[in-house]
Design a protein around this nucleic acid. Structure first.
Lengths: 170, 170
DNA sequence: GTCTATACCGAGATAGAC
DNA sequence: GTCTATCTCGGTATAGAC
């Protein structure tokens, strides 16, 4: 799915990569939709656990930023979004998880930013979170196309802002 | 392509929507890859022209921001990105156009921001452009899933920053 | 230009033997 | 659990009549 797009994930291809018969897929999954759903849930659950971890760490802002830098999970997310465009059952599942992720981030970062003395009227936590997530996702997509104009500057800008509140130990 | 994803764009479907025979597609296009390429080029060219327009206007920052808010072209772009994952010929075409777009934006906004008195060390034009584009694209994707946590705050934040330099006349 | 006929492939899915 | 055999559908693509 990451390498060749969601359309490349077929019963035959799956089976041949594992070295079994293609119909065996239907012994483990009702339909291909179910397979995609389980795949999504598994990845989302893992990401959720990692997010709980970094949000409760002493540097939640930096942790969140690092987390959104995971190439594989971002590529996968993009494929699921594209998949959701013509597999409607996937759509609601993604929506629910997205909201869950965002609410957790918001819950934690609202108080964290307040503690850092950030003016919530000018830089609301919800906007800060969204800007970080979107920049990260956007750059990873572009990298896959060897487009990297402004990437270094953007990363530097964001990390400079983070370092203002959470010292860089890397 | 926008409504049901790129996988729904097939010879049979195209033909049936227009009311002609499916094989007629091959009279106008060598292969389906060619069709997708021409579709992409046409849309990209149109967007490029609109960008030239707003960049040479008196409010290039706001113009660019408004431009990235076009739902259809963003959805389409996302589909092309997903398509590029398993149609390799599409990939280089997208990459070239992306760079072209970005270079034009950078050329213009570097001097514009300098004229506004923005500190280029703290807020480089390349990063400002990327943050705007990514936030806009990200929100439009989420909207399709009815996820809008933090959207209003982010839009307000960005428009507030723009208004600092280009007065809002809307 | 637009059609019919047709080839070929690979997708999802089921029945049933082992 | 894993397989073979098989169905149906719809995809890309070509040859050739009109």
């Amino acid at each position: 799915m990451v390498e060749d797009g969601y359309a490349a994930v077929t019963t035959r291809r799956l089976a041949s990569e594992v070295g079994v018969n293609s119909t065996l897929v239907y012994y483990y999954f009702e339909t291909m939709d179910e397979l995609f759903l389980e795949l999504f849930r598994r990845g989302a659950q893992r990401s959720l656990e990692r997010q709980v971890e970094v949000l409760s760490s002493p540097k939640p802002l930096r942790g969140l930023w690092d987390l959104t830098h995971d190439l594989t999970s971002t590529t996968l997310t993009n494929e699921f979004i594209a998949l959701a465009n013509h597999r409607k059952v996937i759509r609601s599942e993604i929506a629910e998880y997205s909201k869950k992720f965002r609410r957790m981030q918001l819950d934690r970062l609202t108080s964290v930013l307040e503690g850092y003395g950030v003016d919530a009227d000018e830089w609301p936590a919800s906007a800060v979170i969204l800007l970080m997530a979107s920049a990260s996702r956007f750059m990873l997509i572009e990298e896959a196309f060897d487009v990297d104009i402004g990437h270094a500057e953007t990363v530097a800008l964001i990390e400079r802002l983070i370092s203002r509140y959470e010292t860089d130990s890397r």
